[in-house]
């Protein structure tokens, strides 16, 4: 039982890390630009598809992964220049309209180019094994790699935000948006940078997850909503909050799906428990979010809103 728990805890952490990679850019976009971007999940999907495409062309995992970064960065830049930058000073509703439209356009483009069937991406040889965890339980190396890479990215982001000039601007912007515009001229470049970097991180997440899950046109949707949950729990604009909330949400979701039915079985008959478990488990993250917002309406690390 303990081994199973450990295993699921790692799975939860791995899922949480993925959520963090997608959420990191988006929370800054929310916090600094007060911009509602529904199209962020699509970038995660694009990352997956670019990975699958490059793998098909080169059959080299590392080369493909290296190519995903500049390509998704470019997609982010193009979208920023063509669409997003014209919407910064518009109402939330216009932003919802435009980015919802983008979701439709990009998902449909992907369907036209690659079809609706899921694609799979092969794992690199050296990462396809597993390592002993505790006793007889083994854990896949690749998933450990995902956790490691995610922690590395988190560390790098922390360094950028805590130690660099750009990071200073980001922190100032997340705390007080009008301050950023008061800081001068390179605000447009800062926005562009945040957008493009966020797109790249989301694309990267989509690429490294592709050997674990399959790549399909719906993958952006499911992660987008969970990303929102993570951002809101963590507090809009806070990368630290996004990190904690992502791990929390990943672990709660994974453990809930695994242990929910088991726990329920001890208090009700198995058939009903299975049904109830199936019903409740996917709702757990949302319950978590509602609970957090109930007690802290601005999230765990958000600045409190004046009411």
């Amino acid at each position: 039982m303990f081994n199973l728990f450990l295993l699921q805890l790692l799975n939860g952490a791995q899922f949480g890390i993925l959520l963090f990679l997608v959420a990191a850019g988006l929370t800054l976009v929310f916090g600094i630009m007060d911009f509602i971007n529904l199209a962020h999940g699509v970038l995660y999907m694009v990352g997956g598809y670019v990975m699958a495409m490059m793998m098909g062309a080169t059959n080299n995992f590392w080369l493909s992964l290296a190519m995903v970064l500049p390509l998704t960065l470019a997609v982010g830049l193009v979208l920023e220049v063509l669409v997003f930058r014209r919407l910064y000073d518009r109402s939330h509703l216009d932003q919802v309209l435009a980015t919802f439209g983008l979701v439709l356009v990009l998902s449909e483009l992907v369907r036209i180019i690659w079809g609706s069937a899921p694609l799979s991406v092969a794992m690199p040889e050296i990462l396809s094994g597993s390592v002993p965890l505790a006793g007889p339980v083994r854990y896949p190396v690749y998933r450990l790699g995902v956790i490691g890479v995610g922690l590395g990215v988190a560390l790098a982001l922390w360094f950028v935000i805590a130690r660099t000039r750009v990071g200073m601007l980001l922190r100032a912007g997340a705390a007080n948006r009008s301050m950023v515009s008061a800081l001068g001229t390179d605000i447009n470049r800062l926005f562009m940078l945040v957008f493009a970097a966020g797109a790249m991180l989301a694309g990267f997440a989509g690429a490294i997850v592709s050997p674990i899950l399959s790549v399909d046109p719906g993958m952006g949707d499911s992660i987008l909503i969970l990303t929102f949950v993570v951002i809101v729990i963590g507090g809009v604009g806070s990368v630290k909050g996004a990190f904690c909330a992502a791990l929390l949400a990943g672990i709660v979701d994974t453990l809930g799906r695994m242990f929910g039915p088991i726990i329920l079985k001890s208090i009700m008959d198995p058939a009903a428990a299975a049904q109830a478990g199936r019903t409740i488990a996917p709702m757990l993250v949302y319950v978590l979010m509602a609970a957090v917002l109930f007690w802290r309406p601005a999230g765990l690390f958000g600045r409190s809103v004046a009411r």
Binding site: V229, V236, F294, P297, A298
Partner: peptide, 10 residues
Amino acid sequence: RTRGVYFIMI
């Protein structure tokens, strides 16, 4: 209990 983006998300 929430406002703005938080209301949309909740």
